[in-house]
Amino acid sequence: MKIQLHSVSGRHPAARPTASAALRRVDLEVHPGEQIAVIGPSGAGKTTLLHILACALRPDGGTLLLDGRDPWRQPARVLRALRGALFLAPQVPPLPPRQRVVTAVLAGRLPHQGLWHSLRSLVYPTGIAQADTALARFDVSDKLFARVDRLSGGERQRVGLARALLSDARLLLVDEPLSALDPARAQQAVATLTEAARDKDATLVATLHDVPMALQYFPRIIGLRAGEIAFDLPARDVSRELLDELYAHEGLPALPLPLEEPVPELHVPMTCR
């Protein structure tokens, strides 16, 4: 899916109507099948950007085009169909606590199913094998029939990501998918998401606080600061100086990897649960 933002501004989804804009006159173009990591300090506008791209938040100014169409100028039925081609994975997955994991994962297919099939799946899930396969890619298939409220925070986050693998969405929007994961699980999750997006030929936009992980797995990096794009570059061109400037007021220690050199790809065996 092609994305075009022309001078787009917007407030955070949880902000009051009188709050200042979290995103300020952003211009951006993303081509179909691209994989982009959005990095930047807390409060930079990353979550607001994803919600605008997901048509969950209407811009306060400017124009959003998805495949050349302004979603907010379409009839309601067209907007619903367009949202069905998008998948937004929030940082905290909206999983009903009493729901079984298998049902939560299969919900990723709901926008592409009829009403009768969707209701029937709530009683007797269809596609159990597909859900199991998706969970296995995040090493959490042993929780297939567990209740969501009995999962750890990291397990919930991986279940939420597994939903994306069953979606037929052409645009995957993932907000901080690593916040509850240890380093090995985080690497596994990012590798799985990027591979799945390539397999689907879907566009992937992910916000990440883990800068080395973003540089390792994403070809294009957007640095966002104070609601504006500080840089938009191939990962190989993102220097330590640019990152120091991006996070200048965060008081962060030096990044743990030598960003001047390519980050080696690590293959982490995942055997324990």
Rank of each mutant, 00 (worst) to 15 (best):
R156Q: 15
V140A: 09
R16C: 06
L151Q: 10
G160T: 08
L233I: 03
A89I: 14
I222D: 04
R80C: 09
D67Q: 08
A254F: 05
R170V: 07
P262Y: 03
D67G: 11
L243W: 01
A146I: 08
A56L: 15
S141R: 15
G108S: 02
L82N: 13
R24A: 11
F145V: 05
Q4G: 06
L257V: 01
A196R: 07
I36T: 10
T271P: 00
G61M: 06
R156F: 00
R24Y: 09
A21F: 13
L144F: 15
L172G: 03
V190F: 02
E265N: 05
A254M: 06
I222E: 01
Q187W: 05
S121L: 01
K46G: 06
S118P: 04
V238L: 02
T207L: 08
S141Y: 00
T192F: 12
A107E: 10
E245R: 00
P212K: 00
R236K: 03
A226R: 04
R25L: 11
G10F: 12
L65R: 13
G33F: 07
R163T: 05
R150A: 12
P269V: 07
E250N: 06
T47Y: 04
A235D: 09
H112A: 12
R77A: 15
L215F: 01
L266Y: 07
L252C: 09
D70S: 08
Q188K: 03
R100Y: 10
G153K: 03
F138Y: 13
L259I: 02
E250Q: 15
D201M: 12
Q216P: 02
G68F: 09
L65V: 03
G114V: 13
L252T: 10
R220H: 14
Q4W: 01
L178S: 15
W116Q: 02
L181S: 02
L204C: 08
L193A: 12
P253G: 04
P96V: 12
F145M: 08
E176A: 09
P258V: 02
